[in-house]
Design a protein around this nucleic acid. Structure first.
Ligand code: MN
Ligand code: MN
Ligand code: ZN
Ligand code: ZN
Lengths: 140, 140
DNA sequence: AATAAAGTTGTAATGATTACAAGTTATAAA
DNA sequence: TTTATAACTTGTAATCATTACAACTTTATT
């Protein structure tokens, strides 16, 4: 809640630039993403909010997430084969999926440190890094 | 064709280890992947082979690709949101998707050069790197 | 040749996402 | 404050990649 208030002007101004209104449903989706740093699926967001907003539709969640993504407030993760996940943290970082517990972890990465060859003349706009394996808890 | 013959013993032995027979259809799928280094979709493989094998079924292509993936001969790319792509090159390398022409390019990457923080105690098994932007041809 | 295991194929089912249309809400002008 | 308009929400239907399944065919082994 604090964080949302802190960045509130930032969020609203960015939304206004894209002609996007901060509706009740959208605010709740944003809040959910802020409070649940688990890179949730649409299904998880839906079940997390349906008690608070009994009329909520999954279509609204999809619309919201697409709008927020276009506004640059949310990032879509395609780390799963069949289902998208959503990240409120838009700063550059990597993702690790544990094959055992299924959790998706963030990790810090210095992209500039990466030695690559074969992209001379290419204009790189996005960099996504998906690791998988076994997390520290599940390794034990 | 040369490459397939060159690695033939390697392929067959790896398949035998997994109790996978190298059927006519599977050989053709492998050949297609060797000759068309475009990280094709199932749809592209299907259309590329249907004239040669008029009875070919998409289910067979899915089965084949899943079997080859389990045997370690093929890698699945989840660089697209909605459709999987398949790569005959299993050595570690990165992928770049051009937003203009849609082509997917390989690039060399030294994963060991990457500075990461936050995965202490994690057992990393796979590393995927997906870039997007505009390729050199489309930049002009 | 007989048997069993593996492979192929067509069809149906699954499931995430999008399309669409009707009704609702918020914004801004009058 | 009313009014007009654009944006938003919602339920339902459509789309489309992938998988499940069952019948049939091929291959390997005895
Ligand atoms: Mn993240
Ligand atoms: Mn590749
Ligand atoms: Zn784990
Ligand atoms: Zn291009």
């Amino acid at each position: 809640m604090e964080e949302i208030k802190t960045n509130f002007e930032d969020i609203t101004s960015r939304l206004k630039n894209n002609n996007i209104r901060l509706s009740h449903q959208r605010l709740k989706v944003l809040e959910f993403l802020h409070r649940n740093r688990i890179h949730p699926t649409v299904e998880q967001i839906y079940h997390g909010l349906i008690d608070e907003i009994p009329t909520l539709s999954k279509t609204t969640i999809y619309n919201t997430l697409n709008a927020l993504t276009e506004a640059g407030l949310v990032k879509i993760l395609n780390i799963e084969e069949n289902e998208a996940r959503y990240d409120i943290e838009t700063d550059e970082h990597g993702h690790f999926k544990c094959k055992v517990c299924g959790n998706i972890y963030d990790f810090k990465v210095n992209m500039d440190s990466l030695e690559i060859k074969g992209l001379d003349g290419f204009k790189i706009l996005t960099k996504d890094m998906y690791f998988s394996g076994i997390c520290a808890k599940c390794v034990e």
